[in-house]
Every structure is written in C-alpha cells, then in structure tokens.
Design a protein around this nucleic acid. Sequence first.
DNA 1: CGGTAAGTTGAGTAGAGTCAAATTTGGTGG
DNA 2: CCACCAAATTTGACTCTACTCAACTTACCG
Lengths: 248, 248
Amino acid sequence: MLNDTLTAVPRECGDCPIRHRAVCARCDANELEQLEKIKYYRSFEAGQTVVWSGDQMEFVGSVVKGIATLTQTMEDGRTQMVGLLLPSDFVGRPGRSTAAYDVVATTDLVMCCFRKKPFEAMMAKTPHIAQRLLEMTLDELDAAREWMLVLGRKTAREKIASLLSIIGRRNATLNLSDVTGSVVFDLPLTREAMADYLGLTLETVSRQISSLKKDGVIHLEGKRHVTVPDFDRLLAEAGDDSDGGMLA
Amino acid sequence: MLNDTLTAVPRECGDCPIRHRAVCARCDANELEQLEKIKYYRSFEAGQTVVWSGDQMEFVGSVVKGIATLTQTMEDGRTQMVGLLLPSDFVGRPGRSTAAYDVVATTDLVMCCFRKKPFEAMMAKTPHIAQRLLEMTLDELDAAREWMLVLGRKTAREKIASLLSIIGRRNATLNLSDVTGSVVFDLPLTREAMADYLGLTLETVSRQISSLKKDGVIHLEGKRHVTVPDFDRLLAEAGDDSDGGMLA
DNA sequence: CGGTAAGTTGAGTAGAGTCAAATTTGGTGG
DNA sequence: CCACCAAATTTGACTCTACTCAACTTACCG
C-alpha cells in the first residue's frame, strides 16, 4: 500500500507540486539536477511518528503531501504542538545532529528527503538554497511569535477562532480564492490535536466549538467539515482586527 | 548625556564586544571593512521605543549593549512579549518593509545599525552574513518554540521558575561560570515585563515569586537581586528535567 | 451489528484573574 | 542629609475561566 502512495508522487522535480514554494524554490535547472541525485521519497501513514525528539537526524526534507505536527512533551506527559507542517514546509535543521521535537504524521504523508550531510554540503555551495531556507525560517519565526500571543493572552474562545481562521485562510490561499464572506474547509486535526496546539484541554476545545456553532459563527457537518458564513465575524471572535496569524 | 553612552561604544568593529557572536561573526577583515562603511550607532534610554510595530523599518541592526524587548499588542491592550533581545541579537527582518513588533529598550541601549537597503545589497553578495543570520534565526525559532511550551502548558509557578532559570543560565554563560549549585543574578525586567513575557498578570508574578522565596527556592535582596541556592531545584520547579529553554 | 475511538456534555473544583488596598523603594528637591 | 513623592511591588478578598473527572453519544470500521 505504501507503493500506491509513492506512485502518486512525482519522480521529477519539474512535476513537483511544491516546486515553487519549498526549500528548492529558487534553484535553477542545474541546481535542481544536483538535488535530484540526493533526494528520495518516504511515505508515512497517518499516526506514524516521522522523527522522535532526541534521535539522530539522518535526513532533512520537505513535506510534499499531507500534514505533520511538531510537538514537545514534558516528562509528565503534557504536550504542546509547536508547529504545523504543511506541503512545502521544511523539516530538520542543518547543522544540528539530533531532533529537538517529535514529528508526527497527522494524515498520510509524503516527504522529499535529503541525507543530511550531502544536503549541508550542497547548501554551502548553493546560496539559492540557503537564501530560501532563511526566508522560510524567518516566516516560521513570525508564525511562532504570532502563536505566542495566542497561547499567552487569548481566551479559549479566541484561541479556537484563531485556529479556525488560520486554517481557513491557508485553505483559501491554496485554492487561490478570496477570504471574503463564506469559507468552507475540513479540519485536519482531531480535538485533542487542536487542544495540544492551543494549550487547552480537548473538553474545552469541544465546548468552545459548540459555543461558536450555537452562536452561528460556524456551521458543522459531521465533526470535521466547517462552514464559516462570515469570515470577518470569525476574525473578530479571534480578537484580530485584520489579519492575525498567517501560518504558512 | 547620549554622548556619554556613545563614547563608551567602540568605533572599530575589531574592538566590538559582540564581534564574534553577532550577525557579522563570520565576516573576514575585508567584509568587515565594507560593513564599517554602512554602520552607525544609536543609543536609546531605558523605556524608549526603538521601533513601533507597523512602522517603516529604515534600518536593521544588532544590540551592542543593554536589553530590549519584542512585543505584540492587541487592540484592547493585552500585550505579549515574543522575544528578549540581548547583546549580539539581531533586530529587523531583511526583505520586509514594515516592523511586525514593537521594540522597546528595557535598559539603556546601544545598537549597531545598518541602513536596510545597503545591508540587503551586501547580504546578497556576502554569504557569510546570510549564513550567520540563518543560524541565528534558527536559534531564535528554537527559543520561540521552547517558549510556546512554557506559555501553553506550564503553571504560573513553573513559568516563573522557567524564566528565572533562563536568566540564570544566560548570566552564567556570559560569565563563563558553571550553573552548578548556587547562582546569583539581577532581574533585568520589572514584574509587569515578566508578566508580559509569561502570559500572566503582574499580581500572579508577584505572588509566585513570593511563594518561591517562602519555599527557599530563591532568595531576594531588594526587588531585583536574586540568589538561587540550588539551581537543580529551580530546574525541577520549572518542570525541566535537565536543560529547559535556552533563550539566547 | 458490535466494538472502539472520537467527540460532547455535565457537575464540581482549582488556579489564575480582577479589583482594591497597603507597603516598599529609589530618586529628588529642599 | 533627610523628608517626600511617584512608581513598583506586595498582599488580600473575591470571581470566573478553564480544568478534572465522569457519563454519555456519535461515527467509523471490520
């Protein structure tokens, strides 16, 4: 079954769906050819752990398809999600040998991997890669800081609204549609994963979603399919005047 | 009086106290000479705002001396500190025109500034700068994620202990002393600033500090001078087994 | 059609927030 | 050098949001 997934993945960088957004975005044809030589695809099933915190990192890479989470765990089991990895996002840190976080596949996942050593060697010779990685890292830093405001200062209701607006906005970006008026999307996370992202308990997440539903801010079909009739209303509930956290 | 401060600042990069840690750390003599041409020093008094969120960023630069904070504010006034800037830390984001956060001098502050355009131009030609900036940004991203765990999952008491252990560890690093047994330092932040960092109210900060004092985890002389008799005890109170958040 | 995981809802509690004094402190002008 | 002031900090009393524990419902999968 893993092969089915692999078959769906492009063999050539030219066909790659994340070609223009990933760490390789700035590479020219020649550089891409070099990358082709050291890349390989790996597939993971939903729920599988991609990397364990503290383990040796033998590769870095990009998410091609699916969603993964970056989480930290305390000894007593308290868990905090510190990043949501979407297609084109980069995993791993050049120059560091062990992983600092758990990476877990939330959905079935395909990654484009590079063995760490050759990648680092290539990065040193190829400014285009380092430049793009810097740009992506600065974006992630902004997203992390945006999230610090959510975690530190927002109420449970605002936290949920913030998460929904981020997911909604991202979906709109991918579909190239406007975030005006009504927005529809599927939640890629369980209530528990949402709780881990928001620094809440899953019960509180559930209650606040019910409350937003009751107040007509969102509609639900099943547990995952969300309709936001008025996106500005959602943003107001999130405590953001205009555009709050852009995550990816 | 500004001149007094300026006089204390090196004119030559060679004498600079942050020479080997800042964004210029990897530059060779020639590159440094180019940087000298576009650099200038600016001093700020404690309490002064260095950059307003949303403003045009006409410069980027490094903290040379003193401490600054990076904060976000919601319309209703809730604020969250998203970074603590220490000597050698970089301010500003190449490739972005407006500031995303308020930068405020917590103590008297000296910055080594570069006009944004020339700096960006130089970065494009000088891999050493971009490399070092990538490294620093990755470190900041790790620190931000570490802090997300603190904000999202720790109790008030653990938050305070986490902040104290970070400050204690940083001081030890600067003094090249071990973080074994007893550690002594001055708090660089008011209770309110600590609260903004930790996502708490200043009253809660005060109560938890009193509680840690009562339990003998710390001793206080005046409001700012802290003695930690047993650093491991403090780490245990922070919920960290070994080394929790390293901030700088 | 049952079994299990995911999600919802309820009741009671606790930890942090709010509002309101009191107290300490560092700095200043006399 | 000392009294005084404004700001920072501490402490108290009360409230409320989000957590805990628990039962129940729903959806999905074999």
